[in-house]
C-alpha cells in the first residue's frame, strides 16, 4: 500500500529524480567548515519561524511596540524563548554568515565556475546585516532608539545627497512612527523576500556546480 502510494506520488512529483539529482550525488570529501552554508540557511529559517510567532503579538507603533514586547516576554507562553532565540539568533547568524564568507574566500571557492554564487552570497551577507540594522529598532527601547538615530544620521554626512538618504531612511527629518513602520516592513517583508529568493538561487548553484573541494598544493 505504502509502495503504491509512493509510486503514485513519484509519478506525479518526480521524487526519485529529485533524490537522484539532489541527494544521491557524489561530492568531494570536505571538512567541517563546509557546514557553515547550511547552518546559515537553517538559521535563516529559524529566524523566519520565530519572527512569524513574534509578529503575532508585536505592534509596530511607538505607543505599543515596547509594551507588546513586554507582553511577549511576560504574558505569552514561551514568548521569552521565542524572543530569546530570535534575539540571539540574529547575532549568531551574522557570525555564521561571515565565517561562511571567510571560508569561501580562504579556499578560493569564489573562482571559476562559482563567481555568480559568490555574488549572490555577497548580497546575502549585506541583507543579513540589513536585517540586523532594521530589527534592532523594533523593540523601541532606549538602546534601539538612539542607535538608530545615530545609524540613520551617518549617511547624512555624505556630500550633496546625504540629507536626502537620511530622510528616506527615517521617512522624515526625525525618527518617528513612520521610521518604525518602514523598518518593520523592510525587516519582515522586503529583506526576507530578497534573502529567500537569493538563498534559492545560491543553493541551486551549489547543487548544479557541486560544492567546492578543499584545494591541495597543486590547485
Amino acid at each position: 500500500m505504502a509502495n503504491k502510494a509512493f509510486a503514485w506520488l513519484d509519478e506525479r512529483l518526480g521524487l526519485t529524480t529529485i533524490y537522484n539529482v539532489v541527494l544521491d550525488r557524489k561530492v568531494p570529501k570536505v571538512n567541517w567548515w563546509f557546514t557553515l552554508g547550511s547552518a546559515s540557511a537553517i538559521l535563516f529559517l529559524l529566524q523566519g519561524v520565530t519572527g512569524m510567532f513574534l509578529a503575532v503579538y508585536y505592534v509596530p507603533s511607538p505607543q505599543s511596540a515596547y509594551d507588546s514586547i513586554q507582553f511577549i516576554m511576560n504574558g505569552v507562553a514561551f514568548g521569552w524563548l521565542i524572543r530569546g532565540i530570535h534575539h540571539w539568533g540574529a547575532s549568531l547568524m551574522v557570525i555564521v554568515v561571515f565565517l561562511h564568507m571567510l571560508r569561501t574566500f580562504y579556499y578560493g571557492a569564489y573562482k571559476y565556475p562559482r563567481e555568480f554564487t559568490w555574488l549572490t552570497g555577497v548580497v546575502l551577507l549585506l541583507c543579513t546585516l540589513g536585517m540586523g540594522f532594521t530589527g534592532y529598532l523594533l523593540p523601541w527601547n532606549q538602546r534601539a532608539y538612539w542607535a538608530t538615530t545615530v545609524g540613520t544620521e551617518l549617511p547624512g554626512t555624505v556630500p550633496l545627497i546625504g540629507p536626502f538618504i537620511t530622510n528616506v531612511l527615517r521617512g522624515g527629518a526625525e525618527l518617528s512612527a513612520v521610521t518604525l513602520t518602514r523598518f518593520f516592513a523592510v525587516h519582515i517583508w522586503f529583506l526576507p523576500a530578497v534573502i529567500g529568493a537569493l538563498i534559492g538561487v545560491h543553493i541551486y548553484m551549489v547543487v548544479k556546480l557541486g560544492i567546492s573541494s578543499v584545494p591541495d598544493r597543486e590547485d
Binding site: 516576554m73 521569552w80 534575539h87 523601541w140 532608539y145 526625525e174
Partner: peptide, 15 residues
C-alpha cells in the same frame, strides 16, 4: 542563550 542569558531589559525609548 535564550534560557540562561535571556534578553536584557531596556527602558522604553525616550526621545
Amino acid at each position: 542563550l535564550a534560557t540562561f542569558v535571556g534578553v536584557a531589559n531596556e527602558p522604553k525609548a525616550d526621545p
